[in-house]
Simulated scan of single mutants.
Amino acid sequence: MEALAQVRGQDGGAIAADPVLFDPDRALEEPVLPPGRYRCRTVKLGRKAAGGLGYGAYPWFRCMVGPGAVPGFAKVDGSQRQVGKIYPDTDARAVFLGTLSLGDERGAIRYRRDPQRDVAGWVERIGERRWRIAFPYPAYESTLDLMELVPG
C-alpha cells in the first residue's frame, strides 16, 4: 500500500493503466504457475531513498518454471535475475523464496547466504493466464517490485 500511495502521488496514470496488475486484492485460485516458459517483466514501485524513482517499468524478459511439487523458478536474462522455489500456501497465494543474481554472474547463490540477495514474495494468479510475484521491500531501489508473468 505504501508503494502504491507513493506512485499515485507522483504519477497515478501508471497505476490506472493496468488496474488488474496493481490491485492488491486481486488473487484468483490456483496461484502456482504451471511448468513452462514465460515472459516476465518487473515494475518497481516506491522509493527506497529520497530522490529515487517512484515508478519504473522494465521490458519483458524470459522466465522458466520447472516441474515438481515445489516448482523451481528462474528469470533467465536481465541484470537482476530471481532464482528460487514456489511453495504452495493458500488457495489464492503461493510463496516464492530465492536469491538474486546480478549482472554477469553465472549462477545463483544459496538462500540465506547473503541477506542482500535473499528475495521473498507472494505469487498470485491475476488472470486466466497471468500471474504476478510481489516482492515487498527488496534490497535495492524500490519499496515493492511486481513481476508480471504470462506464457511465452
Rank of each mutant, 00 (worst) to 15 (best):
E2P: 05
E2V: 10
A3L: 07
L4P: 03
L4V: 11
A5E: 14
A5Q: 14
Q6R: 11
V7N: 04
V7D: 06
D11Q: 10
G12Q: 08
G12P: 01
G13A: 04
G13P: 02
A14S: 14
A16C: 01
A17M: 10
A17R: 15
D18C: 04
P19A: 07
V20H: 14
V20K: 15
L21H: 07
P24A: 07
P24Y: 12
P24G: 11
P24D: 12
A27D: 01
L28I: 01
E29H: 11
E29Q: 14
P34S: 15
P34H: 10
G36T: 13
Y38N: 04
R39E: 04
C40P: 02
C40E: 02
T42P: 02
T42R: 04
T42A: 02
G46T: 04
R47D: 09
R47C: 10
K48C: 07
A49D: 13
A50T: 13
A50V: 15
A50N: 10
G51V: 04
G52T: 10
Y55C: 00
A57R: 12
Y58I: 09
M64R: 15
M64H: 14
M64I: 13
V65K: 06
G66H: 01
P67C: 11
A69Y: 06
V70P: 01
F73T: 05
F73C: 10
A74D: 10
V76P: 00
D77F: 03
D77K: 08
G78M: 07
R81H: 08
Q82F: 06
Q82W: 03
G84S: 06
G84W: 01
I86F: 07
Y87T: 01
P88L: 10
D89L: 15
T90N: 09
T90L: 04
T90G: 06
D91K: 15
A92G: 00
V95P: 00
L97G: 00
G98V: 01
L100N: 12
S101N: 06
S101G: 04
G103T: 07
D104A: 14
R106I: 08
R106F: 03
G107N: 11
R113I: 09
D114W: 03
D114G: 06
Q116M: 11
R117P: 03
R117E: 01
D118W: 00
V119A: 07
V119W: 00
A120K: 06
V123T: 03
R125M: 05
I126V: 14
G127A: 09
G127D: 06
R129L: 09
R130P: 14
R130Q: 14
R132N: 04
R132A: 02
F135D: 02
F135Y: 14
P136Q: 10
A139W: 01
E141Q: 13
S142F: 07
T143C: 12
D145Q: 06
M147C: 09
M147V: 05
E148V: 08
E148M: 00
L149F: 03
P151Q: 08
P151C: 02
